Computed example of a mutant assay.
Amino acid sequence: MEILAFGVQADEKPLIERAFHGHHEVRCVEVFLNADTAPIAHGYEIVSTSVNADLGPRVLQTLAVGGTQLIAQRSTGFNNIDLDVAERLGLTIARVSSYSPYSVAEFAWTLAMAVNRRIVRASTRTRDFDFRLDGLMGRDLHGRTVGVLGTGKIGECFARIAHGFGMRLLGWDIAENPACLDLGMTYVPKERLLAEADLVSLHVPLMEQTRHLIDADALAGMKDDAILVNSSRGGLIDTAALVTELRAGRFTGVGLDVYEAEAGLFFLDKSLEPIEDDTLARLVTFPNVLVTSHQAYYTRDAVGQIIDTTVGNVLDYLAGRRSDNVLVPRV
């Protein structure tokens, strides 16, 4: 059987082909799954998709009509999938329920340190042989307060690194993580966390209850010189409200690996095209903002685990087995 994998990056292709070798053939395409590209999947029983795939009603209908029965998404998040429609169409949906939490936690800290110590500005200057220190002053994080919104596996890893820096730990989640409590974390209401934290990092899934978790009111409640990092999902932050605060001169730095309207932009080369997204265009002009293209998970370790789990999901489906990775079971 040949499997069709959408949205495969150049670095991923040999890993995917190697993982499926000896099991099934796999056709890797760079294009992302959306309404325009869905017809490519005609005749493929199994399709694998990337995190930014459009799996709304129209795309799911096209896949079902074309004979697709299993969609194996290579990500943990599944806010891009209309699960109710998939179930109604008889499609099986599987995801990667977990992978290396260190990849995302370490990258979140990379963003935090980069904006705190003005690394991008410093690198740009030195390339022009400008070695002045004006505007590059950061601050020690030791002894300051970090607020971790979401203390699951990734949030816990982030907190462990913060503990290593010697920071005071505040947490917010629907349930307390014993490992974080052992680190000395104090769980507090979100409003208190935002008011006291010098660094705020987001590690919660995107769902209806968490969309715009950081809205205008939340931003207004943060310290003027705080650092805000989001390596989870773009929809957690009201970006328009964030731009308003940045225009007012607030925040030491903002590090974003995700953006709420990233679909159709991230993972693609748009360098020769006009950017029609005015909010993103404005966001990247701020000198204290660093935006990266959803790469926090992108380590050989994490991607390897994601691919291995995806192969396992395919083999389980073909063998009639069901695992915790299945979001919509086989009928």
Score class of each variant (00 low, 15 high):
125 R>M: 08
126 T>P: 02
128 D>R: 09
129 F>G: 01
129 F>D: 06
130 D>C: 00
130 D>T: 00
131 F>E: 02
131 F>Y: 11
131 F>D: 02
131 F>R: 02
132 R>V: 01
133 L>F: 02
133 L>R: 05
134 D>L: 01
134 D>F: 00
135 G>T: 03
136 L>K: 04
137 M>D: 10
139 R>F: 02
139 R>S: 08
140 D>E: 12
140 D>R: 05
141 L>P: 08
142 H>V: 02
144 R>G: 08
144 R>Q: 11
145 T>K: 14
145 T>P: 10
146 V>K: 13
147 G>V: 14
148 V>A: 06
148 V>I: 15
148 V>N: 11
149 L>V: 15
149 L>F: 00
150 G>K: 02
150 G>W: 01
150 G>F: 00
150 G>N: 05
151 T>A: 09
151 T>W: 12
151 T>G: 06
152 G>I: 13
152 G>R: 14
153 K>N: 15
153 K>A: 15
154 I>C: 07
155 G>D: 11
155 G>V: 13
155 G>Y: 10
156 E>S: 05
156 E>P: 01
157 C>K: 09
158 F>C: 04
158 F>M: 12
159 A>G: 05
159 A>C: 04
159 A>L: 11
159 A>N: 07
161 I>C: 01
162 A>K: 14
162 A>G: 08
162 A>T: 03
163 H>T: 04
163 H>Q: 12
163 H>K: 14
163 H>N: 13
165 F>D: 03
167 M>C: 09
167 M>D: 10
167 M>P: 06
168 R>V: 13
170 L>I: 10
170 L>H: 07
170 L>N: 05
170 L>A: 03
171 G>P: 12
171 G>E: 13
171 G>V: 07
172 W>I: 02
172 W>S: 12
172 W>H: 14
173 D>H: 10
174 I>C: 04
174 I>P: 02
176 E>Y: 04
176 E>A: 07
176 E>W: 05
176 E>I: 02
176 E>K: 11
177 N>H: 08
178 P>C: 03
179 A>N: 11
180 C>S: 12
180 C>Y: 04
180 C>H: 04
181 L>N: 01
181 L>K: 07
181 L>R: 07
182 D>C: 00
182 D>W: 00
182 D>G: 00
183 L>T: 00
183 L>N: 03
184 G>S: 06
184 G>Q: 12
184 G>I: 05
185 M>I: 02
186 T>H: 06
187 Y>W: 07
188 V>E: 10
188 V>Q: 09
188 V>P: 06
188 V>H: 07
189 P>M: 06
189 P>C: 08
189 P>T: 11
190 K>D: 04
190 K>G: 01
191 E>L: 09
192 R>T: 15
192 R>D: 15
192 R>S: 13
193 L>P: 13
195 A>W: 04
195 A>I: 05
195 A>H: 13
196 E>P: 10
197 A>G: 10
197 A>R: 12
197 A>W: 06
197 A>D: 14
198 D>C: 05
199 L>C: 08
199 L>A: 07
199 L>P: 12
200 V>D: 11
200 V>T: 15
201 S>R: 12
203 H>E: 11
205 P>Q: 08
205 P>L: 05
205 P>I: 01
206 L>Y: 10
207 M>P: 03
208 E>K: 14
208 E>M: 10
208 E>P: 05
209 Q>A: 15
209 Q>G: 11
